[in-house]
Design a protein around this nucleic acid. Structure first.
Lengths: 233, 233
DNA sequence: CAGATTTTTATGTATATACTTATAATTCAA
DNA sequence: TTGAATTATAAGTATATACATAAAAATCTG
């Protein structure tokens, strides 16, 4: 307590992790309860709680009240990935960032977008197509639909200075988002905009963000060939 | 306190989140310190700490000792994505899972793999190519290299019953991983294995996992056209 | 005045205690 | 015997307190 010898929650977490990895506690096994572990490790129950909670959050343990704590059967490890703000991403690589607005108009969206945006038939949305360049070369282009109802300032915003991507991040809070990652084959349009060959495989991110009341925006980012999204555990 | 009216850390978190979203506390602003907030919310500092820590973990606040807590300038939202175990993913969709081992041999890896796996020149690794099928149709194929030094049982494992993917998840603990997501263009080999056309865009995951001492395995998963990886915030 | 030292301060963590809550297990009742 | 009520239990949370630690700010020094 006063001496200096104590178990931090990290120590406890490391030891529990070691036991899981060493298969001393196997997937599906119940592990001792918090009270028992706190005695074993010579620390407070709160400390054990912190350690186990952390491991549960990262998917290695399953915990339920009264039932107890068990080693996760399907150790679904979770990776966290940052949502890129394109300018930061490019500038972070030491390249210069520039963007061009290719299209900006109010438009009735196609049905797929309308479903995503949950708007009534016939309602016009802001349609925005932007090309982002790194060192002058096409990097990614965004085909974006914005619900002006959810974003009051959008009509008057100067989207040539700051891209919609950045403008929205700074000006419009969102509560939730929905991402999907996939690949597509470059057609004539993509080939022209991204200055690549038709038929090349392109990395695509589809993203919708919303707040309590509205779907704010829905965007498809199509990256030039060679793009990689990276993350670690 | 005893009555029933109290502020849980969730309540505090929700209110802080509201203020951030309402721009009462703008990106870059310092927010009141834990002691002040605990007075304002009528709760213990530990409760405020829990709330703020949580928000910091999800990227909305930046905290530093002594400096204080500020609203993140670049609200890099973090999405967590589950690392797919292919069989679960397919069966989760209600499809039947099957896999075929296309190649399994000890082999000296090409230099790119060798660099990734951090092995000495000339050292042989286990090379394994597996096709995973959903309802009998090609879903993804894995081109995998395994360091037998890190995985003692691998030589004798029956990888026709359980795929290497699943066998490794169950039998080999790992401490860290490295993921990258990208797109490629189907060449003759991919077209043949995945039964798609040459020139189609394919989604690719490159993954390495390691423990303290070794890089365990490095795999490239190439998905059939149409695959989407999905996540929410 | 630059550079080293000390002080101050906000977050970070540990602990004992107490109470809450979900839920498994048990008992009771129809 | 089934279904409802009760009990016991393990995690979940709140709190007061104390000390640790990083780092900004202030002070001291040559």
């Amino acid at each position: 307590m006063s001496g200096g010898e104590f178990n931090s929650w990290q120590t406890v977490q490391a030891e529990v992790l070691r036991r899981i990895n060493a298969r001393e506690w196997k997937p599906g096994d119940f592990i001792p309860n918090e009270a028992e572990l706190s005695v074993e490790f010579g620390c407070a129950r709160a400390t054990v709680n912190r350690a186990l909670r952390n491991l549960a959050e990262s998917g290695l343990l399953d915990r339920r009240r009264k039932a107890g704590t068990r080693v996760a059967l399907h150790p679904v490890r979770k990776a966290t990935l940052d949502i890129p703000v394109i300018r930061y991403e490019i500038e972070g690589k030491g390249q210069t960032y520039r963007h061009i607005v290719l299209l900006r108009q109010r438009e009735v969206p196609p049905s797929g977008i309308r479903a995503r945006m949950q708007t009534e038939p016939g309602v016009k949305l802001v349609h925005l197509v932007t090309l982002h360049l790194a060192d002058g070369k096409p990097y990614v282009f965004g085909d974006r639909w914005i619900n002006p109802e959810a974003v009051p300032g959008i009509e008057s915003a100067d989207l040539t200075a700051k891209s919609a991507n950045e403008w929205l991040v700074v000006n419009v809070p969102f509560e939730g988002g929905d991402f999907s990652f996939s690949a597509m084959t470059a057609g004539p349009r993509e080939a022209e905009i991204l200055a690549c060959k038709e038929g090349e495989g392109l990395f695509v991110i589809d993203r919708s963000t919303w707040n309590q009341t509205h779907v704010i925006t829905s965007v498809r980012l199509t990256f030039a060939p060679g793009y990689r999204m990276h993350t670690e555990i």
